[in-house]
């Protein structure tokens, strides 16, 4: 029974996230200024490329599809205000590496080339890379409240019940042994 429920949950989830992914692309990147609170459009495009290398799409959404850019953008006006300069410099550097090696901005090069640029960034500016890595993972695996982990996609990916089950104490006492 548990397996069946899992399959259903996963199918529903795939549909939901496909829709969510579309919403991200059409909602955030088409309007003027992208609707970002802090990021300039160009920086957002570079950041999207970086984040999606840190968490690429597979059967489950990529970082940006799950709202990680929204998470980072919002926090750059709130708790991570102190990291604004690091972001501005780090994204500029990523874009520069891309132009030097591949003749185009990071958003425009191929996925393989983006991966090479992000690897170079990790070596050349580990401070910024570690920061953006941590923030990307926070946005993806943290609470949906902050704009990332949209519809709790990462939690479902990990097999966690979402919304969580309630009242399990009684259930477990009856069961008395592991399932």
């Amino acid at each position: 029974m548990k397996g069946k429920r899992g399959i259903l949950a996963r199918r529903d989830f795939m549909i939901a996230t496909a829709a969510a992914g579309t919403a991200v692309l059409s909602g955030c990147f088409s309007s003027h200024n992208g609707g970002w609170e802090n990021l300039a459009d160009a920086d957002a495009a570079t950041l999207k490329a970086v984040c999606d290398q840190i968490i690429p799409a597979d059967g489950f959404p990529s970082a940006s599809e799950a709202g990680v850019l929204t998470y980072i953008d919002r926090q750059l006006t709130r708790h991570y205000r102190r990291h604004r300069k690091a972001y501005a410099a780090g994204l500029e550097q990523a874009d520069r590496i891309s132009r030097e090696h591949f003749g185009a901005g990071l958003e425009s090069v191929t996925t393989q080339q983006q991966m090479a640029v992000v690897s170079a960034l990790e070596t050349q500016n580990s401070g910024f890379f570690n920061l953006v890595r941590e923030h990307t993972l926070e946005g993806y695996y943290g609470s949906p409240r902050h704009g990332g982990n949209r519809d709790a996609v990462s939690w479902r990916m990990l097999g966690l019940d979402e919304p969580p089950l309630r009242g399990r104490a009684q259930y477990d006492l009856r069961k008395g042994s592991p399932s």
Binding site: I54, I55, P56, D58, R133, M157, G159
Partner: peptide, 16 residues
């Protein structure tokens, strides 16, 4: 790996 598809797959494989 610390990032990329390998990290995502490891999260999925190891979490539970």
């Amino acid at each position: 790996p610390r990032w990329g598809l390998g990290h995502k797959q490891a999260m999925r494989a190891a979490y539970k």
